[in-house]
Design a protein around this nucleic acid. Sequence first.
DNA 1: GGGTTGCCCGTTTTT
DNA 2: CGGGCAACCC
Length: 770
Amino acid sequence: MMDVFEIEEPNETITAPEKIEQTVERLPFLVDLNPEQLQAVEHTEGPLLVLSGAGTGKTRVLTTRTAYIIEKHLAKPYQILAVTFTNKAANEMKLRLEKMIGSAAFSVWLGTFHAIGVKILRKHAEKLNLTSDFTVLSADDQERLIKNILTERGIDVKKYDPATVLEIIQRWKDRGLLPQEVDFREKKSQISGLAFDSYQTYQNRLHTLNAVDFGDLLLLPIVLFRENPDVLEEYQTRFRYILVDEYQDTNVAQYLLLRLLAQKWHNICCVGDDDQSIYSWRGAEVGNILSFQKFYPDAGIIRLERNYRSTAHILGAASGLISHNESRLGKTLRPVDDTADVGQKVTVKGFWNDMQEADWVCEQIELSQKRGISLSQTAVLVRATFQTRLFEDALRKKGLPYKIIGGFKFYEREEIKDAVAYLRLILNSNDDLAFLRVVNKPKRGVGAKALEAVSETAREKKVSLFDAVAWAPLKGTVRQSLDSFIYLIKLAQEKAQTATLPETARFILEESGYMQLWQQEKSPEADGRIENIEELYNVLHDYDTIRDFIEYASLVSDTDETGDEDQLVVMTLHASKGLEFQNVYLTGWEEELFPHKKALDESGTDGLEEERRLAYVGLTRAKEYVAVTYANNRRMYGHWVNALPSRFIEELPPEHIVITGTGSRAFLPADRPNYFDRRTRDFDSDADEGSVFDKGQWKRETFQKTAYDFYDRLPMKVYQTKETGSRLGKRVRHEIFGSGTVIHAEGERLDVRFDSGEIKKIMARFLEEI
DNA sequence: GGGTTGCCCGTTTTT
DNA sequence: CGGGCAACCC
């Protein structure tokens, strides 16, 4: 739950840390640590990078370190910032911390990057010309918005995919770039040109909606800090210690944010594993971890290599595989105990086709279940979601209880989004996006024509769609049904004053006829949808206000799986990161599927290495047993495709694997070029010296603003005194109003006389200097 | 304004 | 093969 930040910290004076001496003699929780972990906990002052291999106890280090800082009175709980990527990780940490230090755990600023971002933004929203109740757009809201923008510009959205445009914009945001900061040379293709041209409009539109998107939750705090050094200082002073989980997955924006916050005390501890960086396609910059020392020259580095999870054979297989990667800091996983049983070798098995593969896996699972291995200790991992269907069928046939993870997220389901939109409308009837979502759901006879009339009126009167209904030129049934829709929402708003959240929700969904919509439908999914809404009511019980709930729902994508039942899981390799199982089945190890063709086509060697890291993640999920499988023939999109075993299979050291059945290596064509022999790989030859970061990893077109340019540029920007007056007289360009001259400047608010003669107040960030 | 057909496309997706 | 979506028709 998102109850992370509720405690207001007491306003007490802070004693300088050096003045406090160790008041706590024995910290019992330290005895469980191995020497490296202990070192990571005790090295509190100055930047520290903890390279933490899979299964080496990084969460333990993070939580213990936090507890240590508090118990040693180096800082108050509320002076510590601990960030994670997922809510799950944040909750886990909070729970463990509470066990160690009790309720003080709840005063630590502990949450996801995005939750921290939202918290900061809400507090200072007005400085960014937002109000503190801004909405966080969901992924589909974002897409609809960008689609509207493209359509308005007469772009054929069939030819130019809005999702791609949005993605390009997101990547810019991931790199901390505002519209005016994106280099025009990034218009490398037609589609990126479109993104370039739409980015500013997109931001303007968000702004009018009093909304932000996910990227903004990181980007806007940076803007806030850049433009308000006093605000930045407040946070810098507060956060004496910063801890970061999964550092290999941070993007540039997150890096910048951390850097800003850590600038005063420099006590930043980042924990991560470069070998598990699998989200570069989402904007993660593995460079953040690879060049930590470059950013923080006085940084300490500690390697955690003692693996508490897997057997020696599994570790050997994983280490052997990942050693084929060039771009890594280098780390070798060792079993904790050399004398322990080395366990079973990794099983490698090939099949004629995908169905046989699935059948075999399910059979094995059934067998091991009979031998006493619980299903919940078993995972089937796939590269792509379409593979899950096969296992679904096979498992159902066998009657084995299973759960497919991923794909359909609770809060992304149509019915849940609809229900949430109703709630949003009750919370704030000016929420135009919510209005649009539900105004004709169930059907109220409100079509495009009526909506156009309403939005026309809204534009004229400068009011929300909701308020515009009253004035809009509507007649007949549309008039009637819209009026009663408005009335119903108002009624619900009243009810919300006194009723509980589930009651309010039930009221609006029943009275609006929304539930009926699904009750009448006879499709097999309809029942599921109703169940989901019932489940939503359950979730709502945990919240006091719509606002609290919306905040939660907009930042959390899945219901934290309750899963007490003994069922096995089928999921993607990506989704498996951070989890562990006794037995793991790694399926579909075939060329083009894994490594995936697209990864190779789009990102070449970097792509291949990321795929290999994915394989490494998969292998290291297992405690005792791993089976790697592949099929020679696979049904894809209706036709049969044949495939070669994955090159990754060849990269597994022979001494750690056992090849069984038809899965002979003879399947590998003898004449296949050794295109994955790393010695023959085409690599940047002039980069033999220097950090890992300098090697081939960062071959980018020189014009592109790499993370580096921005990293170097940033501190200056922040410490620059505000250049209020200097903007006077500057020639600027605005996305919509065209070019003009700055005639008055008041902080970031500028008065611009546009060439059309119009004078407008515009925020500097919406302008581009020309 | 709403239902139906036919066409396109098909990796991964922490928030 | 099958879902999603836009053009198309009633």
